[in-house]
Design a binder for these strands. Structure first.
Lengths: 365, 365
DNA sequence: TTGTATGCGTTATCAA
DNA sequence: TTGATAACGCATACAA
């Protein structure tokens, strides 16, 4: 029934098939495009439109299969209803819950994320940033965890063009909003758990020097150790190297644990910088015939999805990754609203609390 | 130096800060917007532009910080340089390498993926589909693995509006392009590996009935069994239920393995429907004090990222997930080109070969 | 070699 | 209660 009319509507304007515009609806109903617009958007003026008119238009729009053209709308309104999301590496399990949190917070707002994955490469990050700016995304969320991106550009952006927020990383000087976990508290929680389980000889794998999380986690560890007069043996402390890709920490967790074992120093627990490091450590321990947790407890950090599936499941310090994603969305959306109302928006730095998740990889000594 | 000029350029047109348009560049150089457009896009006519002019324009554009407005360009050209990507669930590790593959293939084409996550919900899928259509994405890639989405809409779309491809799922009747792994070959490979390792008592966890992969994998298993006269004990065959979310197969792998153990039937190997099922099985075996692979070999399917990290690492049938993503991009891009040239585009069904990856969870008996 | 004019589909302002 | 018109920023056909 509808099809012939659609065809004729399209013929009249000579447009490519499948593209019904407001004008087509206007012609089909006999009203003007302006009226159609008002009705279909339920604009304020719609109050004054005769209800018969309204019905005619709505019904016709549906019958013709009219679909608003977001491009045109965006051009007019200067809002793209899109948020650019740049991840340092999708392949890193850390990113996934964050991405989910972002998407989930955007959904009810009818915003869509435009997805960019930097592959841990600086030039790729910059290229994507440029592409997103050309698309005039309304806001920007950057999930970063490594340093070699000089994200100073973001600070500028945030001040003069579009609202931005970073997750898992922050710019010195509070010039861009950020969402982070309280790393110091987390470091403390991990060590405290091991200590309270009776461990005194604890091997520690620290994070890579240049990673922003490394120092505060270590500080949390040291502070707790001091507070209970626990001695941290330097010979049982190693540091991950500064190389990055999604599984490098697994491999290095494995290697560093082998190093620990070679020293013949006794330890009854191992505190790893993050979950993948911990899993690597667990493999090395298994290979050496050391059972976890009976002979050695292991803790991680992040509570990445795999940690719950490992055998034994991993005790870890949970980052509220999904919440971090949605929090960033909240910050950016507030800023967008401010921008629309021509107000300045604040730089906000959220620090969320980590949570100790006790599973099967730790054990009383 | 540049800033005051920027300010004045903006003042003249009264536009909001940070938005330099072609007209601004035109005014600043004294040329017309058309010339500016031709130069900055390196359009065919750029050949005829005086090189001094060209330089002036390019230099000025840079100095003013001109950035093309993709919205406007898209509206004009009717191409959004975007691909809609709908995943059934980002949280499922299966999706991640596919997403990476899609993004990676799109990057050199200056296309950007618009990200949608259906959360395994049909209404969410439909809503996202509608949003993507309104944005006039040039193409659509749907990563689906479950049935409750009646993706017949896709067939229509593909024929009349935008090129589409599915990954990991296919519509009956070849009405939409799809990229799949050869499940039958994969099922065969898994069983063949166990058989050749000497296993004869093999427990099997089949996939959920409604999942499209289930039947062909099972067929591959049966055919191989017949070919070597291996008897498959029905008492050692269980099926995953039809409930879906990212970790349900892990849990059910665990439970079904416990069921196997309760029957007291002996088996020296377990062939699981997918990797998460296998990991669940491994946990159940560990809990029962059965060591993998010494007392029981285990195989998975997919080669999801965690499988390499598990202890012991999992032998599995690898789906070339990243390649599947890039293949889908290839199909869709070809169709887009065809559409632009007003040709019809074919429906293509790619079936990629799985690859057996032997790790530590299997062992000769 | 460059400029003018027009239109992509919407929406907002103003007029009727 | 509705319609005419202009403009968003860009790219093209055509004119000069």
């Amino acid at each position: 029934m509808g099809t012939p009319e659609v065809a004729s509507a399209m013929k009249k304007t000579g447009r490519k098939r499948g593209l019904i515009t407001m004008r087509d609806v206007a012609q089909a109903t006999g009203f003007s495009p302006a009226t159609v617009s008002i009705v279909l958007n339920n604009a304020p003026l719609a109050r004054y439109i005769a209800s018969t008119t309204r019905q005619r238009i709505e019904e016709t729009a549906k019958r013709l299969g009219y679909r608003p053209n977001a491009m045109a709308r965006f051009l007019r309104s200067k809002r793209s209803q899109s948020i650019g999301v740049i991840l340092f590496d999708v392949t890193d399990p850390f990113c996934i819950p964050i991405l989910r949190g972002i998407e989930n917070a955007l959904y009810p707002l009818a915003y869509l994320p435009i997805f960019a994955d930097a592959h841990n490469q600086r030039d790729r990050f910059e290229r994507y940033l440029e592409m997103l700016l050309e698309r005039h995304v309304d806001g920007l969320i950057v999930v970063a965890n490594w340093l070699f991106v000089d994200i100073d550009v973001l600070a500028d952006l945030n001040k003069r063009e579009i609202p931005a927020a970073t997750i898992g990383w922050e710019l010195p000087g509070k010039r861009v909003s950020s969402v982070m976990v309280d790393n110091e508290a987390g470091g403390r929680q991990a060590l405290e758990h091991l200590y309270q389980s009776g461990h005194r000889k604890i091997a520690i794998i620290r994070g890579p020097k240049r990673l922003i999380d490394t120092a505060p986690r270590w500080r949390g560890i040291q502070k707790f150790a001091q507070s209970v007069k626990l001695e941290i043996d330097p010979a049982l402390t190693l540091q991950l190297p500064d190389l990055f890709d999604a599984t490098s920490s697994f491999e290095h967790g494995y290697r560093l644990t082998e190093e620990f074992l070679q020293t013949k120093k006794k330890f009854t627990a191992l505190l790893a910088f993050d979950d993948l490091t911990a899993l690597g450590a667990m493999r090395a321990l298994a290979k050496a015939g050391i059972s976890v947790p009976e002979q050695c407890s292991v803790t991680g950090f992040d509570d990445v999805a795999v940690s719950a599936l490992a055998v034994p499941s991993l005790t870890t310090v949970r980052q509220p990754l999904e919440v971090m994603g949605s929090t960033a969305v909240g910050i950016v959306m507030d800023a967008i609203k401010a921008g629309q109302e021509n107000r300045d928006w604040p730089v906000v730095s959220q620090k969320l609390h980590p949570e100790l998740v006790i599973r099967d990889s730790t054990h009383n000594t």
